[in-house]
Computed example of a mutant assay.
Amino acid sequence: MIEHGVPIAIPGEKLRAIVATLSLSPGTTVPVYDLLDELWGERPPRSAANSLQGHIARLRRTLVRQSGREEIRDFIRTFGSGYMLALPPEDIDATRFTSVVETAGRRVAHHPAEVIASLKHALAMWHGPALLDTGHGMICRTASARLEETRLIAQELLIDARLALGGHHETVPEIEQLLSRHPLRERFCEQLMIALYRSGRQADALNTYRRVRHRLAAELGLEPGPGMQNTLAEILRQESSLLQQAG
Rank of each mutant, 00 (worst) to 15 (best):
S25Y: 09
S25M: 03
S25E: 11
P26E: 02
G27F: 00
T28K: 15
T29N: 05
T29M: 08
T29K: 09
V30R: 04
P31R: 15
P31M: 13
V32C: 04
Y33W: 07
Y33L: 06
D34F: 02
D34M: 09
L36R: 12
E38R: 01
E38H: 04
L39N: 11
L39K: 10
W40Y: 15
W40V: 00
G41F: 04
G41E: 13
G41R: 10
E42N: 13
E42P: 10
R43V: 08
R43Q: 11
P44G: 11
P44D: 11
P45I: 11
S47M: 06
A48C: 05
A48W: 08
A48Y: 08
A49I: 01
N50F: 07
N50G: 06
S51H: 08
S51E: 15
L52W: 11
L52R: 14
Q53W: 05
H55D: 12
H55Q: 15
H55Y: 15
I56Q: 04
R58Y: 05
L59S: 07
L59K: 08
R60Y: 01
R60L: 01
R61C: 00
T62G: 03
T62F: 05
L63A: 06
R65M: 02
R65E: 14
Q66H: 10
S67F: 00
R69W: 04
R69C: 04
R69E: 04
E70Y: 13
E71C: 00
E71G: 09
I72L: 15
I72V: 15
D74H: 12
D74F: 07
F75A: 08
F75P: 00
F79N: 05
F79Q: 14
S81Q: 15
S81A: 12
Y83E: 06
M84W: 04
L85K: 12
L87R: 02
P88H: 01
P89A: 15
E90Q: 15
D91S: 13
I92T: 00
A94S: 12
T95D: 09
T98M: 08
T98L: 12
S99F: 00
S99R: 14
V100C: 04
V101P: 02
E102M: 05
T103E: 14
T103L: 10
T103F: 08
G105H: 02
R107V: 00
R107A: 03
V108Q: 12
A109R: 13
A109W: 04
A109Y: 06
H110S: 14
H111T: 03
P112Y: 08
A113M: 10
E114P: 02
E114R: 10
V115W: 03
I116C: 07
A117M: 09
A117Q: 14
S118M: 13
L119C: 12
L119D: 13
L119T: 07
L119Q: 09
K120Y: 10
H121A: 14
A122P: 04
L123P: 00
A124E: 13
G128E: 04
G128F: 02
P129M: 04
P129L: 06
L131K: 09
L132Y: 04
L132C: 06
L132G: 02
L132V: 07
L132W: 10
D133K: 15
T134G: 03
T134K: 09
G135T: 05
G135K: 09
G135C: 08
H136L: 12
M138C: 05
M138H: 14
M138V: 14
I139W: 11
C140S: 14
C140P: 01
C140E: 06
C140L: 09
S144I: 06
